[in-house]
Amino acid sequence: MRALAIPPPPPPTLRRRLRLGWKRLRLLARARRAGAALEPVADRTGGIRPGARLAVAVLRDEALRLGHWLEHHRRLGVDHFLIVDNASTDGTAERLAAEPDISLWRAGGSYRASRFGMDWANALLGRWGPGHWCLTLDADELLVFPFWEERGLSGLVARLEATGRPALPCLMVELYPDAPLAGAACGPDPLAALPLFDPGGFWTERQRTHGCVLVRGGPRGRVLFADRPGLAPVMSKTPLVRWQRGWVYVNSTHFLLPAAPNLVWEDGGLSGALLHTKLLPDLLPRSAAERLRAEHFTDPRAHEPYYDRIALGPDFRHPGSARFEGWRQLEALGLLERGGWT
């Protein structure tokens, strides 16, 4: 069976390659400096075997989500967690330090000054990541992908390797409660508290400087940035990468440098989804605190209206909201793709 394959995009110009190369070197230097400032709390990295699947995260006050997050990703088959604790005060650090498969570092510095934690994550990835499949996540992100219950992360990375893919592109599926945000309840399972999501309405565009594909939109964009679509959050990420020396994440895990691994975003290949549990009721006090710290967003003042609207406890529901059932539902909606994996 022969089919017309979709050709890759044209190679970037020399000028752009040089610019991106320079940017990558700068980010690597930042990561090195940030890594030197990390203070080990529990270093169990001696237990990382060749081929182990690693998870990297930067956390702050995530006691609410932590249990479920760890359980989900252990079930997927993460072998070792590398975590930076950014001055938690709710017992997150103590809890993490006690776990046998977690190595923990403390970072006292500014979240914003470390490019929203990415310098710390890049430092860990650069030190422990090369040669491993690395999953870089926030505590409010749960990875799902085709056949995740049955085949796990080990099946997924074997498939990606067999098809020559260095990374898994993902869409953030933002979950929201079946109630106005202010009045919602929350138990230990965030998926029970957040049953709804937007089944579509994202838009896909090509990011000009890096040439990668971005998906934008989502319920936060729809409700909080209704009049300024240019500020709508980026909903695509590349959290799972077979890491190599010299690679860096640029902007959260939305894309990385060099640009080549991002180009898996082209032709209907295997992709996954990150269930985003940000919109739990604790978002209200959290964003009030964030607003004071002014540690989020590149331009915090432009996001003042965002905080104003969150403080009102917005209602994300609409008649088209879908109830989350599983990855097959996401596939049917076109939010992820099995890419010939059957």
Partner: peptide, 11 residues
């Protein structure tokens, strides 16, 4: 692919 679908792995 699925023609008409534009998403993170089909563009």
């Amino acid at each position: 692919g699925r023609p008409g679908l534009w998403m993170q792995s089909r563009f």
